[in-house]
Computed example of a mutant assay.
Amino acid sequence: MMRKCLPLFLLAFLALGSTCFAEDMKVGFVYVSPVGDAGYSYAHDQGRLAVEAMDGVTTSFVESVAEGQDSERVIMNMARKGYDVIFATSYGYMDPMLKVSKDFPKVKFLHCSGYKNAENMANYFGRIYQARYLTGMVAGAMTKSNVLGYVAAFPIPEVIRGINAFTLGAQAVNPDVQVRVVWTKTWYDPATEKEAGKSLLDVGCDVIAQHQDSPGPQEAAQERGVYSVGYNTDMSAFAPKSHLTAAIWNWGPFYTEMVQQIKDGTWKSDFYWYGLDKGIVDIAPFGEMVPADVQKTVLDKKAEIAAGTYQVFTGPIKDQSGAEKVAAGTVMADADLLGFNWFVQGVVGTLE
């Protein structure tokens, strides 16, 4: 009799044991810059904290990871340590993550801002160009010189798309405006970013925007007594007399949605590109120097974009040479937006 009962007892014990010692889902994040208290990686880390608050989930991150071989090493290390989900948050992590994903088919990999997928690797970003357009409207309304400056990281489609959206937004309220671009070839280098901002101020720009992680360009603008437009997070604390607004991220809803889907077993690899309608992108509160009528105009346009009744890249749109690239009434397809490799008319700068 005991010999018949023993297997049942063991099964019950093992079942109890598997429940008691079940581990939380492990979710890892890889950042290209320090988390700090503002900027790109800080915005992603706020999203991580939302995931950390979920039941049955633990998270960790590695910051200041260089693109290329360093990122491959960090991503592979996470996979080997049993992470269930790994988010890599910089464009240059794409190929390293794709390579690692092939060796760990049970791990879910999600890459931010690229375009390559696999069965267990998705790609995601936000339509931050929508917020860029709105901040361009503010800059175009506030400039006196009609010359705006843009401190930009690398000449890749993501950055080019943002510059073009910012320019179109500025032109929507001020057709005479031009946008001068300076490349830093870095995502995060406060000193370099600040010097780039100063170089734009030296040629007459009186509003400085940026696609950079630090508030360096904002600080340069405030020191010269002109305006600035931030990026990633509300940077008003770093330049309160200068900061007009910023294009900002809110990653919490997206990250928690993806992790919940993975927990539920409903997740599928895809390209996720959410915008104002999902709350993933937005603009920071306006500085007190922005007039009420300008604020209203911008917020009205924000509502139109969120509702889908206005598309930022609707023709006619011309390139720098004046050639028509998008016909009147035509909306650029996502595939074309993702491959942006030309500047709109009004941008002063080169793609190198």
Results as ranks from 00 to 15, higher is better:
Val347Gly: 02
Gly346Phe: 02
Ala335Gln: 15
Gly339Asp: 13
Asp334Tyr: 07
Ala335Phe: 11
Gln311Pro: 06
Gln345Asp: 12
Thr330Gly: 12
Ser321Lys: 04
Thr314Arg: 02
Gly308Leu: 06
Gly315His: 02
Thr314Phe: 00
Tyr310Ala: 11
Leu338His: 11
Ala333His: 07
Ala323Pro: 06
Ala323Glu: 10
Trp342Ala: 09
Lys325Ile: 11
Gly346Ala: 12
Pro316Thr: 08
Leu337Met: 14
Gly346Glu: 00
Gly349Asp: 04
Phe340Asp: 01
Val347Gln: 01
Glu304Cys: 06
Thr330Phe: 09
Ala327Tyr: 07
Trp342His: 02
Val326Ser: 07
Ala328Pro: 00
Gly322Asp: 05
Val312Tyr: 05
Val312Thr: 04
Ile317Cys: 09
Gly315Lys: 04
Leu338Ser: 14
Ile305Trp: 02
Thr314Tyr: 01
Val312Leu: 12
Gly346Leu: 03
Val326Leu: 09
Thr330Ser: 15
Val326Lys: 01
Ala307Leu: 08
Leu338Tyr: 07
Gly315Ser: 10
Val331Lys: 12
Ala307Asp: 08
Asp334Lys: 14
Thr309Cys: 10
Glu324Thr: 12
Lys318His: 09
Ala327Phe: 10
Glu324Val: 14
Ala323Tyr: 04
Thr309Trp: 01
Val326Gln: 06
Gly329Val: 13
Phe343Lys: 01
Leu337Asp: 10
Gly322Ile: 11
Met332Cys: 12
Gly329Tyr: 09
Phe313Arg: 07
Ala307Cys: 05
Asp336Trp: 05
Ala307Phe: 00
Val326Ile: 10
Gln345Tyr: 00
Ala323His: 05
Phe340Val: 06
Ala303Thr: 07
Ala323Leu: 13
Gln311Asp: 08
Gly349Val: 04
Glu304Ala: 10
Val326Pro: 00
Gly322Val: 07
Ser321Leu: 15
Asn341Val: 12
Asp336Glu: 13
Ala303Ser: 11
Ala335Asn: 07
Tyr310Cys: 12
Val347Phe: 00
Gly315Trp: 00
Gly339Ile: 10
Val331Pro: 07
Gly322Cys: 13
Glu304Asp: 03
Thr350Leu: 14
Gln320Met: 15
Glu324Arg: 13
Ser321Tyr: 09
Tyr310Val: 09
Asp334Arg: 14
Val347Lys: 02
Thr350Ser: 14
Gly308Met: 09
Val312Arg: 04
Val312Asp: 01
Ala323Arg: 06
Glu324Ile: 10
Gly315Cys: 08
Pro316Trp: 03
Gly329Leu: 15
Glu324Pro: 12
Gly308Gln: 04
Asp319Pro: 04
